[in-house]
């Protein structure tokens, strides 16, 4: 009966229907695959990562995600990347871990930074010792304070795991897992961690209603008082500076890399996106609130030979100005990013 009925439909109508179905399917496919496409926010600088050498695919990204959440990367299978980089804090560490906690509860040396907008960074870590995103995870894996594992052992463990062998086959068409492919997969996962969807961004892109009057005043004050170092849409000029936290530098910072005494006690000017969610602050996690940070710049700068010249006299701020700046800094929180399902450990 149904078949009979179908034969009565005009042929052009069936054709149209078929075309429509195909088109819809294509649009769905497109939308799905777009989730894995790197999109540069139009107000952001050009990315530093060379995507031609490591094109992001669904399989590569999903593999990178699995690795990111897998404690197999650590010596005793107890610590994953996610242990110190949590999505709700823009992939910075949890507030109760001022310094990262590795295997055997070993305490790290510095505060784990957020992992946002890594595709745009010229250098990585507080001291800038790594110049390519692919090489970043090796430090966490092999640091005795973090995962305390050998890269070769990780590769061995992955090769002994049938599921991983299958996933690497799907992502990179290989029968054998190697460290560069593992690192490329982790890069693919991290490269899509673009955070650019905040009230501030709406405002900058033309929606004048996106920020309140007080937030706009805060933005203006921020640019005037903090904008020399925290410049551009990533809120960093990518330089290394001594911002007067102390006078005795157990952690030499940038000087570890440049081997120059002029750089002792200098650390990377951090970007400030999601800053309200990434406490505690500074490489040594010495401040627990933004109020403390601004108080420091206002009246607690410690003088030492490498202190940044712009901070000789500190940054004079009234309580009212501090409050407005903090109000503005809160507009840099990207709630969509913090709840983006692509980055969640769901199967």
């Amino acid at each position: 009966m149904n078949a009979m009925h179908a034969t009565r439909l005009p042929i052009w109508w069936v054709c149209c229907l078929l075309l429509l179905m195909v088109a819809c399917e294509e649009a769905d496919e497109e939308a799905k695959s777009n989730n894995y496409k790197f999109v540069k926010p139009r107000h952001f600088p050009a990315p530093t990562y060379n995507f031609d050498k490591n094109p992001i695919t669904k399989e590569g990204f999903e593999l990178g995600k699995k690795l990111f959440f897998d404690p197999l990367l650590s010596k005793d299978n107890s610590v994953s990347c996610n242990s110190c980089h949590i999505q709700s804090t823009a992939f910075a560490d949890a507030q109760q871990h001022p310094l990262s906690i590795g295997v055997d509860n070993r305490v790290g040396l510095r505060n784990a930074p957020p992992l946002t907008n890594l595709a745009f960074m010229p250098e990585f870590f507080w001291d800038g010792g790594v110049t390519h995103l692919d090489f970043v995870p090796i430090n966490a894996i092999e640091s005795p304070f973090e995962m305390d594992e050998k890269l070769a052992s990780v590769v061995e463990k992955l090769n002994a795991n049938d599921e991983y062998r299958q996933l690497f086959q799907m992502a990179f068409s290989v029968d054998e897992i190697t460290s560069p492919l593992m690192l490329k997969a982790l890069s693919q996962f991290m490269l899509l961690m673009v955070s650019a969807n905040t009230p501030y961004d709406d405002y900058i892109l033309g929606d004048v209603e996106a920020l309140s009057k007080e937030e706009v005043e805060g933005l203006s004050l921020f640019r005037q008082k903090c904008g020399d170092c925290h410049s551009g849409e990533l809120f960093t000029d990518f330089t290394y500076r001594n911002n007067g936290l102390n006078t005795d530098f157990k952690d030499q910072g940038r000087a570890l890399i440049t081997e120059s005494e002029n750089d002792v006690g200098k650390f990377r000017v951090p970007g400030l996106r999601n800053i309200a969610r990434t406490a505690p602050y500074m490489h040594n996690a010495m401040f627990t609130s933004l109020e403390q940070v601004l108080d420091h710049y206002d009246n607690s700068i410690q003088h030492s030979p490498t202190l940044d010249p712009t901070l000789e006299k500190g940054i004079s701020l009234t309580e009212n100005e501090k409050s407005k700046i903090i109000t503005f800094l809160n507009t840099l929180t990207d709630h969509d990013f913090r709840s983006d399902r692509r980055f969640m450990n769901q199967q």
């Binding site: 390519h132 090489f135 490329k184």
Partner: peptide
């Protein structure tokens, strides 16, 4: 070559390449 990122063969640290992690 360094700025090409993670590499295989004789440049793979898991296969005996001589690599500095901290100052990559």
């Amino acid at each position: 070559a360094v700025q090409e990122g993670a590499a295989g063969g004789v440049l793979d640290p898991a296969e005996g390449a001589w690599f500095w992690n901290w100052n990559a």
